[in-house]
Design a binder for these strands. Structure first.
Lengths: 197, 197
DNA sequence: TCAGGCTCATTAACACTGTTAACTGTACAC
DNA sequence: GTGTACAGTTAACAGTGTTAATGAGCCTGA
């Protein structure tokens, strides 16, 4: 056919292109609109090429999910270094959670299988999720050094409160303005942290 | 072809069959496995028949979602009649929320677009959701008669806490046993209610 | 009796989806 | 040259939501 010119792209470059294209489509049209063919077209390849980088859509989504948890974990560690007061630490981490969901909703959605995003790989198998949990538990422990059991319970409560408000705010953002939701979120998380003393 | 015998089924019967089949498939194989053709086959009709009852998959899912919210609202009103103490009322309603999500997960999933369930009709457009909200706000108001603004805020907090714990427990139910999660849920909701006094 | 219309349900098709087998072409080694 | 490995393609399969066109049966009116 044609001469098919200049396509010297590194392996890493193409891989990153696939991931960022998937996220872009998800952000603009929602996860249910993300298809292998659409990704391939965007990076100017045919569909089977995608399968040389990820063997299946599942694996691609799982990689993106992991990226999200890893990003979160990095942010948490940044806060750990920045502050020493456990109360401040936990509160700041809560705020990061909100900002993350707000600015990268497509990541948050695939992490929790929200709004049409669906990755059947169990999220609890992710090492990154495990790491995030350990980090938060560490903070809570430095707060109130109790038994492991109690710490996990408090972590679960913190996580649920944060996730619940974020998930609902995301779904209802057209009926309840986000600014208002954010204020409620900050207040609730602040109270949760105070209650720990 | 053949004589195609006995198929005298009422309109209502077929409609109910479509809905219950969709729910059954969702419960057994997850929402991402629910297809119009599969539903049609199960009720022994061809696919286009489904479109005479629901014009599109969206509409079908939205109907099921509404069914869920209506069921919840009915249960809430049952509690309203059963108890007069606002504290008891709110706590009991919290427990209903948990039992509902536990025993009819496929309904809970489609109501909040969880785990592959996806209905693009905005959930906040549902009258049934509005009704549920009003009911809970009424209970909270009988608790602490404050301004409408404050009531809505408390409602949002209660909702988020409940939904967050349920959603996480559903996702993590293979790694954290449900019994343990339920205990934490009851305890957290009890504390929330107490804090309102 | 026969034609028309109404109702119920079907078949066939379109444009998609994820996924895979088979193929083509190019570059390099011997 | 011949062979081989690599990069990327086309074509196909089975499945999806959705809709237009078609058919079969039955009741009514002439």
């Amino acid at each position: 056919m044609e001469t098919l010119e200049r396509k010297p792209r590194s392996h890493e470059h193409v891989r990153a292109g696939i991931i960022s294209t998937a996220k872009k489509i998800a952000r603009q049209e929602g996860w249910q609109a993300v298809s292998i063919r659409k990704i391939a077209e965007a990076i100017e390849y045919s569909a089977p090429v995608v399968y040389e980088y990820f063997d299946g859509k599942e694996v691609l989504l799982n990689a993106i999910r992991d990226e999200g948890f890893t990003y979160l974990n990095d942010q948490y560690h940044r806060i750990m270094k920045l502050y020493r007061d456990p109360e401040k630490r936990l509160y700041e981490i809560s705020l990061i959670q909100w900002d993350f969901a707000l600015h990268q909703p497509e990541l948050y959605q695939v992490m929790y299988n929200l709004e049409g995003a669906y990755c059947s790989v169990p999220v609890y198998q992710s090492d990154a999720l495990q790491a995030v949990g350990d980090t938060v538990c560490e903070i809570i422990f430095s707060f109130i050094p109790k038994a492991k059991e109690s710490i996990r319970r408090l972590y679960f409560e913190w996580w649920a409160l944060s996730h619940g408000m974020i998930a609902l705010a995301m779904t209802m953002q057209d009926v309840q303005l986000l600014e208002q939701s954010e204020q409620t979120y900050r207040e609730s998380m602040r109270q949760f942290v105070r209650r720990l003393r």
